[in-house]
Simulated assay, not measured.
Amino acid sequence: MAEAASVRQNLQNVPSIFEISAAETLDNLIYPALSKIFDYFGLRLDFKLWGSLRVREEFSPLITWILQYLYLRKRASSFGESFYGLQRTATATGELLTRQQQFTSATLLTILPYVERKLRSRSARHEGTYAWESHLISLFHAYNASKAVHTFLYLIKYASSHSPLFRALRLTLRYPSEPPMEDKWTYVFLKGLEVLAFFLQFIQWWYSNDQRRKMGGTLQNPEPMQHPELPHELKDTLPKNGECPVCLLKLQTPTACAVSGYVYCWKCIVTHLKEKGTCPVTSYPITIDDLVRIYES
């Protein structure tokens, strides 16, 4: 009877879908925030593997996995779930995670968003994608649709878990019946990480495209980087009005760079962006999201 009462009490501690959504949002901020930090300090793997294949990767996924596993090991919850006072428990018994469930949960929390983000990034840059990549994107679409259905069923209290992954792992989110037992230094360390959640949100806001577009109208375009004085013969070869600064021909499919304000041919700027990742004129770092197509009225 005591075990049944414990299970019944655990099933009553059901978080709302808004808290679960907020926890997922916070978990999804870890990777992009770490990426911005590592990019700023230049911490990235960059080496030639074989042939023309070159590995350009970052440490963000590894650090994200370590952080999530630490929280799952110490508090039976992810970083975002711990911040909102939630805990992962077995759906049937209400027991905490096993070691295998901790490892699997940390891996899924890291790998799935990372792979989906990479695939969508390649597709947005119009890079050549393989057939298996298109199939993977379709699978992610199917997974997101299934997750929406699970969320609705959870909202009307028809399902015990809000996600197909939780259902597959036979886990659910609950409020803990008692605070986690941990030593002083672990508590201080994890609390310090939770304080950083505010800075993660701030970094995400700062680099969001919507905020950049809102601020763009009040900022002056940056001046090109200073170059030595050129001879008159070379000055005559510089692009004129209506010409692309890359190919020096008449603009075809004019595309503006939101960071610098300069206009290029779409094909020229995309090709240059894949190789350099900068604005050709100002050398400021840009991405495919900074390009804006210009339509003639």
Rank of each mutant, 00 (worst) to 15 (best):
K274T: 14
M215W: 11
L238Q: 14
N241W: 10
S260N: 11
P224I: 00
Y284A: 12
L273K: 05
P245V: 03
V246Q: 00
K276G: 03
W266I: 08
L234T: 03
N241H: 13
P239H: 05
Q220A: 14
E243T: 13
D236N: 12
C257R: 01
P285L: 08
T255R: 03
E275P: 04
A258S: 12
W266P: 04
G217V: 13
C265H: 02
V281H: 02
L249Q: 14
G217R: 15
G216D: 13
P231N: 09
M225R: 14
K250D: 15
P285M: 04
A256G: 07
V263G: 05
C268L: 09
V246Y: 06
C268H: 02
I269F: 02
T253V: 14
P222Y: 13
N241Q: 15
Q252H: 13
G277M: 06
K250S: 15
T237E: 10
A256W: 03
D236R: 11
G242N: 10
P245F: 03
Q252G: 03
T271D: 15
K274I: 12
P280E: 01
Y262F: 14
N241D: 15
P228W: 01
G216E: 15
C257N: 11
G261V: 10
P228R: 10
G242M: 12
T278F: 10
V263L: 08
P231Q: 03
K267D: 15
V281D: 04
T278M: 06
P280M: 08
K274F: 09
W266S: 15
E229G: 03
C247L: 09
C244T: 02
K235M: 03
P231E: 02
Y262L: 07
E233V: 08
E275G: 03
V263T: 14
V281L: 01
G217N: 12
P224C: 02
M215G: 05
C265Y: 03
S283P: 02
T255F: 02
C265T: 10
V246I: 15
T237D: 08
Q220K: 11
E229S: 09
E223L: 15
T282C: 13
K267H: 14
L238D: 07
V270Q: 13
V263E: 09
E233Q: 09
P280R: 04
C265V: 06
I269G: 02
Y264W: 06
I269Y: 06
K276H: 12
H227Q: 11
P239W: 05
P245W: 00
P285Y: 07
G277K: 08
P228F: 05
L273V: 06
L273R: 05
W266V: 08
C247A: 06
G277T: 07
G261D: 00
T271C: 14
C244M: 02
S260H: 01
P224H: 02
E233I: 07
A258D: 12
L273M: 08
C257G: 01
H227R: 04
G277F: 03
N221K: 11
N241V: 10
C279I: 06
P228I: 02
L249G: 11
G217H: 14
L234V: 00
A256L: 14
L248M: 10
T237R: 09
I269M: 08
C247K: 04
Q252A: 12
P222A: 11
K235H: 00
K267A: 15
H227K: 10
P224G: 04
G217A: 12
H227E: 05
P222Q: 09
P254G: 07
S283I: 07
P228K: 02
N241G: 12
